[in-house]
Design a protein around this nucleic acid. Structure first.
Lengths: 256, 256
DNA sequence: TTTTGTTTTTGATCCAGATCAAGTGCCGGC
DNA sequence: GCCGGCACTTGATCTGGATCAAAAACAAAA
């Protein structure tokens, strides 16, 4: 309780201009004065704890949210009570962009661990972007980037096998952490095997088996949620379809 | 040749304000004066023919493109020379939004049939959106909508089986045509079985078999690329996981 | 500490859909 | 009208990963 209070106070106090994430986040490329104006509309609420829901699918859309610390997942209800994990969000990453169109959230977001969030009321942001061209540009870029990421994911789900998917996930996660100043080769997964499997379109068992296989192949060291990448290059090769087991490509390529 | 000339002239001449698509397209919700201003920056080139490439992956991003007539596909190179079809575009739909972020096209676009295109130089559009709040809002909505569509696709590829995928594709295509004033139950597919399969993450053979099965089940009438939806309700039920063959859900749901 | 529930791992089996293999039929070119 | 090639269909087989089952490792509670 004591600790969460500390985090809370801290999260309330850190303005954008002092935030270490500003180079990754919305303020990227803005002048200090413009950052100030953006900062004026940002709200910082108390932190969420594991499992807490930030917004729920169907809720009226009012704000975008940026992760300040911790991590979250977004997920949409699938058929028959199941759900599809759509993405994992790390500090500096924005959530809620998919809700602008319909004016209501198309997915839900919940915390994977204790997390601090910045809330950005969209109506005010929209006003601001009309006044600050570089902010408008940044918004277009952010929206576009999200589309690009979804595209990558479509490629992953449409064309890659289980091994390639997990390798891609690990490497991508590693790179995202690295951009945030953390180790690219030694990190902690805040999500469960179940969530990873769901995200990658695989069964938990498959994810677990692949972790074991990767470890046996000397690519990673896995100890529950603690991951060490021993051979990132090797993972890279797996992603490109050169799995250790098969020398030449046995996959028939779907031409169009 | 004669016919393509006719189309060409027509496509050059129709300004946004006379275009039947304006209610679906970028001008949606703009005042007539603002449509005029938008119209000033739109370029209308000669039509593309089947197979012609509108833009290619890696090319410098300058413009967004809107389909005026016809249809296109976008696709990205997958591993080992294959490609992933990312989307099919019908009149009024915008292409190139994923390129804003990196400043270069992340995918390629090619015509599925003779198609007319409106080109919108992005730099000029960006200037205009700063001046016209409703246009800016429209842009945010369009970008957000694209994200939402990608999300739907992720759900489809991550959680649905072959039958559900094809049913969802047919119904979604039908609805998009209907919005454009065409028949929702009797239409022509401009893409090949191969392209459908690629898009849905299925082998051609599977797509072909499913068309046959759907026809045998009285859901559709298929004659090469000509499709008649006989029982849209039945397709809807398939999408929701109630395939005719199985009474209760044998799929284990991936909980998180 | 034990208890109890959850997450992860491991093993055995199964099946949807991919892949392989042959047609069949359509369409454009000559 | 005939030919050649490509798109599509249909059938037979194979397999990656799902599913089923159960044990093992942990974590939170008591």
């Amino acid at each position: 309780m004591n600790q969460s209070t500390v985090i809370s106070i801290e999260s309330i106090r850190v303005a954008c201009r002092y935030c270490t994430l500003s180079s990754l986040c919305l303020p990227m490329g803005l002048t200090p004065e413009d950052v100030e104006r953006l900062d004026d509309i940002v709200k910082r609420a108390r932190p969420l704890h594991r499992g807490d829901v930030l917004f729920r699918e169907g809720e009226r859309f009012r704000s975008l949210y940026v992760v300040k610390t911790g991590s979250l997942k977004t997920f949409a209800p699938s058929c028959e009570g199941g759900e599809q994990v759509l993405s994992f969000h790390l500090p500096g990453e924005i959530m809620g962009l998919d809700a602008i169109d319909k004016g209501e959230h198309a997915c839900s977001a919940s915390a994977l661990e204790t997390s601090a969030i910045c809330e950005i009321p969209f109506a005010r942001l929209e006003e601001l972007t009309a006044l600050i061209p570089s902010l408008q540009h940044q918004m277009y870029r952010l929206l576009s980037k999200e589309i690009g990421q979804d595209t990558d994911m479509l490629l992953l789900l449409g064309k890659k096998n289980a091994e390639e998917r997990l390798a891609a996930f690990l490497l991508s996660f590693s790179q995202r952490l690295h951009k945030r100043g953390l180790s690219a080769t030694d990190f902690h997964l805040s999500m469960s095997r179940h969530e990873i499997g769901n995200y990658l379109g695989l069964a938990v068992e498959t994810v677990s088996r692949l972790f074991t296989r990767f470890q046996d192949d000397g690519l990673v060291r896995v100890e529950r949620k603690h991951i060490e990448l021993l051979d990132p290059q090797g993972l890279e090769e797996i992603i490109d379809g050169a799995s250790p087991g098969r020398r030449q490509a046995p996959q028939r390529q779907q031409q169009t």
